[in-house]
């Protein structure tokens, strides 16, 4: 949904300059109050007491451990959901079968479940009191209050991102190009790698960017399964929470500023991908019209 260049509107279908100015001002004020000021304040608080303290907060061992764990989590969760998203979109967009819309609803389900509930369900499965808790304890496998639990919870909350980007995209593209490839003698994998993948690359990237942002920033679900062990099971958002609750505001905001930066990079990448995808879509449309 990139910004649109609108054609000049006729006098009949627009408002008086005063109304336009007023509405724009109110909208921008709302954006400033709810988006810009909080964002700026993160960086302002982080640098309140100078560069040295800021940097010190980032290279402190617990912070580094949190950064490592966050990267690891995203590195596992995002590719898993990427593979799933492609498989689900292939099945749903390229074939007709019964119960398709129900399946799509199920795939969307993790978006509507509260992150806290998302964490809880894994505690119920793998926690000490859970279904498989005793068995896991016997074999000395730790999932809850350990890294696997954090990864699982993250996989859950980022579950639909790639799939829900790809399904409508692949449905809109149809499967004529794939059929053409098959007629020309390509195998199934060749068709996928050479024809399907290049056509969905922007949608795929879009889903990955959003999934990654969520994976690195997830708080609620991870908080339930993490156990908050410093230097061990703290991701950056959890580390921020601990620092904040200890009134170590500069360090908390220093770590938070990293996440805010990630958010800004995410927005920039997202805008770029939207632009690129819109351009491709426009070309496809032109091709279809002519």
């Amino acid at each position: 949904m990139a910004g649109t260049q609108n054609a000049p509107r006729s006098i009949v279908t627009t408002e008086s300059p005063l109304v336009r100015w007023l509405l724009t001002a109110i909208a921008l004020l709302f954006v400033a109050l709810f988006l810009v000021i909080p964002l700026v304040s993160v960086f302002a608080e982080a640098f309140k007491q100078g560069w040295q303290l800021y940097l010190a907060a980032l290279i402190e061992p617990d912070a580094l451990a949190a950064i490592k764990l966050t990267l690891l989590t995203a590195l596992v969760a995002v590719p898993l959901n990427l593979v799933f998203g492609v498989a689900a979109a292939w099945a749903i967009a390229k074939f007709d079968f019964k119960g398709k819309s129900f399946l799509i609803t199920l795939i969307d389900l993790p978006f509507s479940v509260s992150p806290v509930v998302a964490g809880l369900i894994y505690v119920l499965l793998f926690g000490a009191q859970g279904w498989w808790g005793p068995w896991l304890a016997e074999h000395d496998i730790k999932i809850i209050f350990a890294v696997p639990g954090i990864v699982l919870a993250t996989v859950f909350v980022t579950f639909p991102f790639v799939a829900r980007e790809l399904i409508p995209l692949m449905e809109a593209q149809g499967s004529e190009e794939e059929q053409a490839a098959l007629v020309l003698g390509a195998s199934g994998w060749q068709t996928f790698w050479r024809v399907t993948l290049p056509n969905i690359k922007w949608g795929l990237l879009y889903g990955v960017i959003l999934a990654n942002a969520r994976a690195m920033g997830e708080f609620g679900a991870v908080s339930v399964v993490s156990g908050h062990i410093r230097g061990m099971t703290n991701t950056i958002p959890l580390h921020v929470e601990i620092l904040y609750n200890e009134y170590n505001f500069v360090a908390a905001f220093a770590c938070a500023s990293m996440l805010a930066l990630l958010a800004l990079v995410t927005l920039a990448a997202k805008s770029y991908v939207e632009w690129a995808a819109a351009r491709q879509a426009a070309e496809d449309r032109r091709q279809a019209v002519e």
């Binding site: 004529e176 490839a181 007629v183 290049p198 070309e283």
Partner: peptide, 19 residues
């Protein structure tokens, strides 16, 4: 279809748009 050795021209051509 892969082994039939037929040439098929699709109604909307189905040219690979990225090639």
């Amino acid at each position: 279809v892969r082994e039939r050795q037929v040439g098929f021209v699709f109604q909307h051509y189905a040219l690979f748009r990225h090639m």
